[in-house]
Amino acid sequence: MSKKILLVSNGFYPENSPRSFRATELAKELVRQGNQVTVVTHPRQGVETFCQQHGIKFKSLGNLTWAEPTIKGSGVVRLFWRIIVRMSLLLFEYPKIQLVFLVKKALKNETGYDALISIAVPYPIHWGVARIWSKKIAKVWIADCGDPYMGQENDTFKPAFYFKWVEKWFCKKADYLTVPTEKSINGYYPEFHSKIKVIPQGFRFEDVQLFTGEKDNSKIVFGYAGMFIPGRRDPSEFLEFINTVESDKPFEFHIYTTTPQFVQPYIKNNGRVILKELVPRDKLLFELSKMDFMVNFENVGNTQTPSKLIDYLIIEKPVLSIKYGDLNKQAVHQFLKADYTQKMLLPDRELYRIENVASKFTALIP
Rank of each mutant, 00 (worst) to 15 (best):
T65W: 05
T65V: 10
W66A: 14
A67Q: 13
A67D: 10
A67F: 11
P69F: 12
P69L: 12
T70E: 14
G73N: 01
G73L: 00
S74M: 09
S74I: 09
G75Q: 02
V76I: 13
R78S: 04
L79D: 06
F80R: 09
R82Y: 10
R82P: 07
I83C: 13
I83S: 13
I84D: 02
I84Q: 06
V85K: 10
V85F: 02
V85N: 03
R86S: 14
S88I: 00
L90S: 04
F92R: 11
F92N: 06
E93S: 11
P95E: 01
K96V: 14
L99S: 08
L99N: 09
V100W: 11
F101A: 13
L102T: 04
L102N: 09
V103Y: 08
K105V: 06
K108W: 11
E110G: 07
G112F: 01
G112W: 00
Y113A: 02
D114R: 01
A115K: 00
I117W: 04
A120G: 12
Y123D: 03
Y123M: 04
P124F: 02
I125T: 04
I125A: 00
V129A: 07
A130P: 07
R131V: 03
I132V: 07
S134G: 06
K136D: 12
A138F: 03
K139I: 05
W141T: 02
W141Q: 04
I142P: 02
